[in-house]
Amino acid sequence: MPDRNEAALQFLLTRRSRPAKTLTDPAPDRAALQPILTAAARSPDHGKLEPWRFIVLERGALARLADLVETRGAERNEAPAQIAKAKSAYQDSPLAVVVVSAPVQSDKIPKIEQVYSAGAVCLALLNAALASGWGANWLTGWPVYDRTFLRDGLGLGDDETVAGVIHIGTQTNPPPERPRPDLDAITTWVDA
């Protein structure tokens, strides 16, 4: 039998994201965020290309982005409720880490594998924040698909996208439980 890490397995079997709207100050400072980012950077990365990077958004940057969401939402004719929801995700967040998918040219590693690696970084970052005792939630929303918001707000290049925005802070309420997938319905066993 392999050696089991029972604590890690129990964490993964019971982990729950904390709704971003329930997160408040304090948020991790740079020293507390360092091991969380380090854990996320250990995600599978076929070819060791590091096709992702982090942008840490502190309060001032989040306020600036909330204003940009409002401006861009009006320019895009987004529904007022959608603008308000997206604005509040930035305005009310104590801290957020943007995981930027930044595929690199490679003859060996397809772009799709590099994009999947960025998704793995998001989950590792979320789990590392939760395991560190913080509340955390992985969000996106219409602003991260708007090229003007990405360019003007986050400084992303034309070949970069956002894999996820991980909001991190102190949880104010216990996380709600939700239904989980029926493993029998989503699993196929193949023996031959």
Rank of each mutant, 00 (worst) to 15 (best):
L23M: 11
P103V: 12
A128Q: 09
P174T: 14
Q10I: 08
R42I: 07
A8T: 12
A79W: 11
S117H: 07
L156I: 01
E160L: 03
Y145L: 02
P2M: 03
T188S: 13
T187W: 08
A8Y: 07
D67A: 14
D159M: 03
R30C: 04
Q34F: 09
A192C: 12
Q114S: 05
S43H: 10
E58F: 03
F54Q: 10
G119I: 13
T71R: 14
W52K: 01
P179V: 00
G155E: 13
L23N: 08
Q82A: 14
I55S: 06
R59N: 01
K111Q: 10
Y90D: 00
P94C: 04
N77G: 12
G119A: 14
I83M: 10
G164N: 10
A63R: 11
L65N: 06
A124S: 15
S17A: 13
H167I: 04
S17H: 02
G135E: 03
T172K: 07
R76T: 03
V162A: 03
R30I: 08
I112K: 08
P110S: 07
C122N: 04
K21P: 00
D107G: 11
R18A: 09
L183E: 11
Q171S: 11
V115C: 08
R180W: 05
A32D: 06
A102P: 06
L9C: 06
S93I: 05
W138S: 00
S117Y: 07
G47N: 04
F149I: 09
A192I: 01
R72W: 05
W138C: 04
E70R: 13
G155Q: 13
K87Q: 14
D67R: 14
V121T: 02
S93T: 12
P2Q: 04
E58Y: 11
V165N: 09
P103G: 04
F149P: 07
A31K: 13
E50M: 10
D191N: 15
I83K: 09
I55T: 03
R16M: 11
V56P: 02
L156R: 04
P28Y: 01
D29E: 11
D29P: 02
A41H: 08
D67M: 11
A192V: 10
A136S: 13
V162S: 01
D3W: 04
P26M: 12
V190A: 02
P176F: 07
V144G: 07
L37D: 08
T187I: 06
F149S: 06
L139N: 10
L65F: 10
G155R: 13
D158E: 15
T22Y: 11
D184M: 04
G157Y: 04
P26F: 10
V99K: 06
